[in-house]
C-alpha cells in the first residue's frame, strides 16, 4: 500500500517534470490594436532567441495573422520556462477597410488587409478557446483601460481558467498611468513595462517564469 503510494507519487512527479520541462507552454499575447503586442513579442524573441517575430507598426492590424515563435526558453531566479509565443492581432468586434484607406492604401489593398485582419481575429479567438495555456494581456498605459472589448476579452480569458498577466505598456510616455490599469483589473497582476525601450524587462521575465512555468 505504502509502496504503491510512493511509486505513484514518484511517477506523477516524473510525469509532472516531463511535462513542465519538455512541453512548451503556449502563451498568447492579446490586447487591443496598437498596445504594443508585436513590439513585446519581438523583444522577448530577440532577448532569448536572437531573432524577431514580425513587423511592428502604427497602422492598426499590422499583425493580421497570429504569428508564433516556438521554444523560447526564459530563465529567471532559478525558474526556467519554455514557451511558444503567439502574437495575435488586436481583438476587436469590427473591421472597416476604409480605415486602411486613411493610411495611403489602394482600395484593393485595404480590402485584402481587412479580410486578413478579420481572419486573424477569428483565429485568435478560436485559439483562446482551444489552444492557449496562458495569456499576456497588453494594454497601452496612456489609454483608458476599460473598454467593452477589454472587459469582454478578460471575462472570456477568466472563464477559460487561464493564467493571465496584465502588461501596462508604454511607461516611457509621459501620460502613462499604470495605476489606472491596476485599479481596473485588480483581480490580476499588473506588470509595467516599455516594450519599446526595454524598461522593466527583468520583472517581465521573472513574472513570466513565475506564472507560466
Amino acid at each position: 500500500m505504502g509502496l504503491l503510494t510512493d511509486l505513484r507519487d514518484s511517477i506523477s512527479r516524473v510525469v509532472d517534470r516531463l511535462f513542465s520541462e519538455s512541453e512548451p507552454k503556449r502563451i498568447g499575447i492579446y490586447g487591443p490594436p496598437n498596445a504594443g503586442k508585436t513590439t513585446l513579442a519581438n523583444r522577448i524573441a530577440r532577448d532569448w532567441t536572437g531573432d524577431a517575430i514580425g513587423p511592428e507598426s502604427h497602422i492598426p492590424h499590422e499583425t493580421r495573422r497570429a504569428r508564433r515563435k516556438e521554444n523560447v526558453e526564459i530563465e529567471r531566479n532559478g525558474k526556467k520556462v519554455t514557451i511558444d509565443i503567439v502574437d495575435t492581432p488586436g481583438v476587436t468586434t469590427k473591421v472597416d477597410y476604409k480605415e486602411f484607406l486613411e493610411h495611403d492604401m489602394e482600395k484593393d489593398d485595404a480590402v485584402r488587409r481587412s479580410r486578413e485582419a478579420t481572419e486573424g481575429v477569428a483565429e485568435a479567438m478560436h485559439w483562446l478557446r482551444e489552444d492557449v495555456d496562458g495569456v499576456v494581456y497588453v494594454l497601452d498605459s496612456t489609454k483608458d483601460p476599460i473598454s467593452q472589448v477589454n472587459t469582454m476579452l478578460i471575462g472570456i480569458i477568466e472563464s477559460q481558467d487561464l493564467p493571465v498577466l496584465i502588461f501596462a505598456n508604454k511607461i516611457d510616455l509621459e501620460d502613462s498611468n499604470v495605476e489606472r490599469i491596476a485599479n481596473a483589473y485588480p483581480q490580476h497582476e499588473t506588470v509595467e513595462l516599455s516594450a519599446l525601450e526595454g524598461e522593466n524587462m527583468d520583472e517581465v521575465y521573472a513574472k513570466i517564469a513565475e506564472y507560466f512555468g
Binding site: K94, V95, V111, S114, T118, E119, A122, M125, R129, Q148
Partner: peptide, 21 residues
C-alpha cells in the same frame, strides 16, 4: 461572446457589414 466575435469576423464584408458594437 467569444464565438460571437469569431462568427462576426467571418461575416464582415466590404461595403456591406463591418462588424458589431
Amino acid at each position: 461572446e467569444s464565438k460571437l466575435i469569431e462568427v462576426t469576423m467571418a461575416e464582415i464584408s466590404p461595403d456591406e457589414f463591418n462588424g458589431i458594437e
